[in-house]
Write a protein that binds this DNA or RNA. Structure first.
Length: 258
DNA sequence: ATGACTGGTTGGACCAGA
């Protein structure tokens, strides 16, 4: 089973790119982020025509997450994280697909740092960690997939010195990620590539993609019950270089049947 | 080295992204 995560940066504005990627790579499950569309403007028709069942959590202008499943309907198990009644942003959706619990998440960017947005990010990550602990306690196979907006280590950024003060690379944010690994979550891409620089995002500015000036901020975290089934992982880099592409590349894992 | 890119909202410049 192939499970992918893709920050599409506008599901309607880049629908043609999304459909092309679905057709080229045929993931069994696709977690999407940054839909930038309210629920009623999610392109359900074209996605169903492409062979995918879908659930989504939309929002006007910003954020928005979805889970697509090829040839079946994802069974929704949660939308939104507990712990903050004030939080109405669409950043988390979760479903059962093919015997695996799959979460599609879009963590807050957090810039500028310091500031209220950074505080919201830290709080959101703490709520994510808490929910993750509850998922781990069930012993079910789970994957937390999405745009974490976290650069975990120096190996995950083209020039670490230039990102020291950024909300994506702040020590407290990296610590939040490290704590989730301590809880038992397994970073699939880093497991597959222990020493290599593997990026998932390249800015639009200054030909970042052509220069390979990238970041690794899109992650798939596997529960210990799922991690032994990891067969392969990678980034669909080539689609990032196509016309009108998202600034993220899709990240995928291949999981053996359970 | 904080870049001049991008979508969305809206019918202009902004906001937000990372």
């Amino acid at each position: 089973m192939r499970i992918a995560t893709y920050n599409v940066n506008g599901v309607n504005g880049r629908l043609a790119n999304l459909l092309e990627w679905l057709g080229d790579t045929r993931p069994d499950v696709a977690c999407l982020q940054e839909l930038k569309a309210p629920a009623e403007r999610f392109p359900e028709g074209p996605i169903r025509e492409a062979g995918y069942g879908a659930i989504w959590h939309g929002q006007k202008s910003w954020n928005g997450v979805a889970i697509l499943a090829r040839g079946c309907e994802p069974i929704e198990t949660r939308r939104g994280l507990a712990g903050d009644p004030q939080d109405v942003q669409s950043r988390y959706i979760e479903a059962a697909v093919g015997g695996v619990i799959v979460a599609s998440l879009y963590a807050p960017n957090g810039n500028p740092q310091p500031g209220p947005k950074f505080g919201f990010k830290l709080n959101w990550l703490e709520r994510l960690r808490r929910h993750g602990q509850a998922l781990l306690a069930t012993g079910q196979p789970v994957v937390l997939a999405g745009d974490f907006n976290i650069i975990p280590t120096d190996l995950d950024v083209y020039v670490p010195e230039r990102w020291r003060d950024d909300a994506l690379f702040h020590p407290r944010v990296r610590e939040a990620y490290a704590q989730m690994l301590d809880d038992g979550w397994v970073d699939a891409l880093r497991t597959r590539y222990p020493d290599q620089r593997v990026y998932t995002f390249w800015k639009y500015l200054r030909n970042a993609y052509q220069r390979d000036a990238g970041l690794r901020i899109d992650h798939l975290l596997l529960s210990p019950s799922l991690a032994p089934r990891l067969r392969d992982a990678g980034v669909d880099r080539e689609h990032r270089g196509r016309p009108h592409a998202s600034d993220h590349g899709a990240v995928w894992i291949e999981i053996a049947d359970g």
